[in-house]
Amino acid sequence: MALIDIKNLHASVNGNEILHGIDLKVNAGEVHAIMGPNGSGKSTLAGVISGRDAYEVTEGSITFNGKDLLDMEPEERACEGVFLAFQYPVEIPGVSNTYFLKAALNAVRKHRGEEELDAMDFLRLVREKVKLLGMDESLMNRSVNEGFSGGEKKRNEIFQMAVLDPKLAVLDETDSGLDIDALKIVANGVNALRGADRGIIVVTHYQRLLNYIVPDFVHVLANGRIVKSGGKELALELEEKGYSWIEEPVGAR
């Protein structure tokens, strides 16, 4: 059984259909890259998977671990093991990273029927994961993302992923706005979290990130459909030729 099975997914925003029938299967242990030009529907797909209510699914289904994902609230999806790394993580002045993450982790653990972590066990876990991402531990005592640089925010997303240990991670343009050093740190973090139990969907505009997070499969999204799928070579081909050669046949339909 696929970890996530998306079938004929149609989704609209304010009555405008953005996704015109997406089919995608991701198995545990696989990394899939979804590439595509601006406006192709990449972020919409990430949003629909995570349960953003701006998107209306008009047709199709998403089955996650055998369950109907579209029937779940965003927090249920998170508890079931879906994680979205935001393209633009929000700043929440007044809530510390530590508290936020502890509340999140314990919500997830409760859902899984595991015991809530006490402060000591939680700190031990946090210290371990902080090292993984090479993060400054003092960031943990700051407000969520407040005053973080772009790189720190993205790193914080991957750090949250490391702590919450999801089954499926969707990285929405995690590379946007990062310089090469920050990109490497984020990629290393993601690579450390690759594993046989986890599926990862990397949504990106550029091939650059895929030099560091090498995908098993690459899908090209254009005008709300997957127009081409292939191995990691496809990303290099896109880098060389751009998106126009892919978009043309769609425009001609």
């Binding site: 349960g51 007044g94 809530v95 936020f100 993450l101 509340a103 999140a104 919500a107």
Partner: peptide, 28 residues
């Protein structure tokens, strides 16, 4: 709403997310 969604996407219920954000507003 974007703040609420961010918290919910991490597993925190909508009701708790709202309370947490009111607290955050004051705690600032």
């Amino acid at each position: 709403e974007e703040h609420i969604f961010y918290l919910r996407s991490r597993g925190i219920s909508a009701a708790v997310a709202r309370h947490l954000l009111v607290y955050a507003f004051a705690n600032d």
